[in-house]
Measured scan of single mutants.
Amino acid sequence: ELELEEVDLYRMNSQDKLGLTVCYRTDDEDDIGIYISEIDPNSIAAKDGRIREGDRIIQINGIEVQNREEAVALLTSEENKNFSLLIARP
């Protein structure tokens, strides 16, 4: 049973970094989820404190993420200042 949490992050300008590194968990081929492998200690996500390494990203801004490229594109989008992440953890 996964616990879901919605985390809203806000950046003042497009130079601010959310600070999330995303990856696949390669140990299970059936698991195509996108996971947070690293959080930059000086980033918006780290200061917010709710997202943890190992969390799975389900949605970004209401869009279900299917692959790492999509997640990276959404997280690094210059147009977005508000990010709503739906994350899951066991």
Rank of each mutant, 00 (worst) to 15 (best):
E1Y: 07
E1C: 03
L2Y: 04
E3F: 15
E3P: 05
L4S: 15
L4T: 15
E5A: 06
E5K: 12
E5M: 14
E6K: 13
E6N: 12
D8Q: 02
D8Y: 02
D8N: 02
L9E: 00
Y10P: 05
Y10G: 15
Y10D: 14
Y10T: 14
Y10N: 10
R11W: 02
R11H: 14
R11K: 04
N13W: 05
N13P: 04
N13V: 06
S14C: 11
S14N: 11
Q15T: 05
Q15W: 07
K17A: 12
K17Q: 13
K17I: 10
K17H: 14
L18P: 03
L18H: 01
G19E: 01
G19L: 01
G19A: 01
L20T: 02
T21L: 06
T21G: 03
T21Y: 13
T21I: 07
V22A: 04
V22Y: 08
C23E: 09
C23S: 10
Y24D: 14
Y24N: 07
Y24A: 11
R25L: 11
R25Q: 06
R25S: 07
T26G: 06
T26P: 12
T26D: 07
T26L: 07
D27Q: 11
D27G: 15
D28T: 09
D28F: 10
D28M: 06
E29H: 13
E29C: 08
E29Y: 07
D30S: 09
D30Q: 14
D30E: 15
D31Y: 06
D31N: 09
I32M: 02
I32T: 05
I32Q: 15
I34G: 04
I34Q: 03
S37D: 15
S37P: 02
S37I: 09
S37Q: 12
E38Q: 07
I39Q: 01
I39L: 09
D40Y: 06
P41L: 08
P41E: 07
P41C: 15
P41V: 10
P41D: 12
N42S: 10
N42R: 14
N42H: 07
N42M: 10
N42I: 04
S43A: 09
S43Q: 05
S43P: 00
S43Y: 04
S43L: 04
I44L: 11
I44Q: 05
I44K: 02
I44F: 03
I44H: 05
I44Y: 03
A45F: 02
A45Y: 02
A45L: 02
A46H: 13
K47R: 10
D48P: 02
G49L: 04
R50M: 02
R50P: 00
R50I: 02
I51C: 14
I51Q: 00
R52H: 09
E53C: 06
E53K: 06
G54E: 06
G54K: 05
D55N: 06
D55F: 03
D55C: 05
R56I: 11
I57Q: 00
I57R: 00
I57W: 00
I58L: 11
Q59D: 09
Q59L: 04
I60G: 00
I60M: 08
I60T: 01
I60Y: 01
I60H: 01
N61V: 00
N61S: 03
N61I: 01
G62H: 10
G62L: 02
I63H: 12
I63C: 08
E64A: 04
E64T: 04
E64N: 04
E64M: 03
V65L: 11
V65I: 10
Q66C: 04
Q66H: 14
N67D: 13
N67A: 07
N67K: 11
N67I: 04
R68V: 08
R68E: 06
R68I: 09
R68A: 13
R68K: 12
E69Y: 05
E69I: 06
E69S: 10
E69G: 05
E70H: 09
E70C: 06
E70I: 04
A71D: 05
A71V: 08
A71R: 01
V72C: 14
V72F: 07
V72N: 13
A73Q: 05
A73T: 09
A73K: 14
L74K: 04
L74Q: 14
S77I: 07
S77N: 10
S77E: 10
E78F: 13
E78G: 12
E78R: 08
E79C: 09
E79G: 07
E79P: 08
E79D: 13
N80F: 11
K81Q: 04
K81I: 13
K81M: 10
F83V: 07
S84D: 08
S84P: 04
S84C: 05
L85Y: 01
L85K: 01
L85M: 09
L85T: 02
I87M: 10
I87N: 02
I87P: 01
A88M: 03
A88C: 03
R89S: 12
R89K: 15
P90E: 05
P90M: 14
P90W: 01
